[in-house]
Simulated assay, not measured.
Amino acid sequence: MSDGTPATAADRWAILRSATSARIGLGRRGDAIPLEAVLDFQLAHARARDAVHTTLDVAALEDALRPHPVLRVRSAAPDRATYLRRPDLGRTLDADTILDGAEDGVDLVLVVADGLSATAVQSQAAPLIHACLARLDGISIGPIVVASQARVAIGDPIGERLGARLCAVLIGERPGLSVADSLGIYLTYGPRPGRRDSERNCISNIHTRGGLSIDRAADTLVWLARESLRRRVTGVALKNSLGAEPAAPVLSTETEG
């Protein structure tokens, strides 16, 4: 301890717990975990399950995105149960989808996909998009596309059909037992079906409980978008160098399928 007194086991666990959201040093009551720790775990598990199974309220999201125009699309997965069992269908547009792009195309199209946490999308997608739009001067933006039962790669056919040079997919990330409403962004230059995971940049862990803030995520996305349009690449060929330190976790992989 700071006064020279040796730290007790409880003190050492408290120090470790202050540095992580992992469940460590929970203690025990007899031969079992304390009841409060059990109840906390059950609550976190219930929130994660709810995040996966909750249906995105598209109408409410459209209202939150005004005045920017919004298009609705669906994946080839007919319902949530099928979507969870068949990741491949979540990457493909429904066969009846009609999307017409501008004659000259656009620089960027923003796609909002429910992914594996509609909870994250419902609460954070609109504020993040508004923050991005306020920073994207000089870049032409297509309509915002809201995709239901969708995974990351659904942005490829959407971007191609809308004639976008760049596609950013905002998607609910797979919930865990510490955060159930984390949002991710996947950026792809020259979107078209068949793009590989290594051709995308990912900004992850966007949430309000110790994660990446909305403003920091918007700054990172806008910097990557401008650099992508200038260099005509994304993924492993585009590294984040915004500021002296990395502004966000920027990966080149697709964690949401």
Score class of each variant (00 low, 15 high):
Ser2Ile: 12
Gly4Asp: 05
Pro6Ser: 03
Ala7Glu: 12
Asp11Cys: 00
Trp13Ala: 12
Ala14Pro: 10
Ile15Ser: 08
Ala22Thr: 04
Ala22Gly: 02
Ala22Leu: 09
Arg23Glu: 11
Gly27Thr: 10
Arg29Tyr: 00
Arg29His: 00
Leu35Gly: 02
Glu36Gly: 03
Val38Leu: 14
Gln42Leu: 14
Gln42Asn: 13
Leu43Thr: 13
Leu43Ala: 15
Ala48Pro: 07
Ala48Thr: 02
Asp50Gln: 13
Ala51Gly: 07
Val52Ile: 15
His53Ile: 02
Thr54Asn: 08
Thr54Cys: 11
Asp57Ala: 07
Asp57Gly: 03
Asp57Glu: 08
Val58Ile: 14
Ala59Gly: 09
Ala60Glu: 12
Ala60Phe: 04
Leu61Ala: 11
Arg66Ile: 11
His68Asn: 01
Arg72Leu: 08
Ala77Thr: 00
Arg80Leu: 06
Ala81Asp: 14
Tyr83Ile: 05
Leu84Ile: 08
Arg85Asp: 11
Arg85Cys: 00
Arg86His: 03
Arg86Ala: 01
Leu89Gln: 04
Gly90Asp: 01
Gly90Val: 02
Arg91Glu: 11
Leu93Trp: 02
Asp94Val: 10
Ala95His: 05
Leu99Val: 05
Gly101Lys: 06
Gly101Leu: 01
Ala102Leu: 12
Ala102Ser: 10
Glu103Cys: 01
Glu103Asp: 14
Gly105Thr: 07
Val106Glu: 09
Asp107His: 07
Leu108Ala: 01
Leu108Ile: 10
Leu108His: 03
Val109Pro: 04
Val112Gly: 01
Gly115Asp: 01
Leu116Asp: 05
Ala118Asn: 04
Val121Asn: 06
Val121Ile: 14
Val121Met: 06
Gln122Ser: 15
Gln124Thr: 15
Gln124Ser: 15
Gln124Ala: 15
Leu128Cys: 08
Cys132Asn: 03
Ile141Val: 15
Ile141Cys: 10
Ala147His: 09
Ser148Gln: 15
Ser148Asn: 08
Ser148Met: 06
Gly155Asn: 00
Asp156Lys: 04
Pro157Cys: 05
Gly159Asn: 10
Glu160Leu: 11
Gly163Lys: 13
Arg165Ser: 13
Val169His: 00
Leu170Cys: 08
Gly172Trp: 01
Arg174Leu: 01
Gly176Thr: 10
Gly176Met: 04
Ser178Gln: 11
Leu183Asn: 08
Tyr186Pro: 11
Leu187Asp: 04
Thr188Pro: 07
Arg192Ser: 15
Pro193Phe: 00
Pro193Lys: 00
Pro193Gln: 00
Arg195Val: 12
Ser198Lys: 09
Ser198Ile: 15
Glu199Lys: 02
Arg200His: 11
Asn201Asp: 07
Asn201Glu: 07
Asn205Gln: 09
Ile206Phe: 04
His207Lys: 07
Arg209Pro: 05
Gly211Lys: 01
Ser213His: 00
Ile214Met: 10
Asp215Asn: 06
Asp215Ser: 11
Ala218Ser: 08
Asp219Glu: 15
Asp219Asn: 13
Asp219Arg: 13
Thr220Ser: 13
Thr220His: 06
Trp223Ala: 14
Ala225Gly: 13
Arg226Ser: 11
Arg231Phe: 06
Arg231Gln: 15
Val233Lys: 01
Gly235Ile: 06
Leu238Gln: 03
Lys239His: 12
Lys239Pro: 03
Leu242Glu: 05
Pro246Asp: 07
Pro246Gln: 06
Glu254Gly: 06
Glu254Gln: 14
Glu256Gln: 14
Gly257His: 12
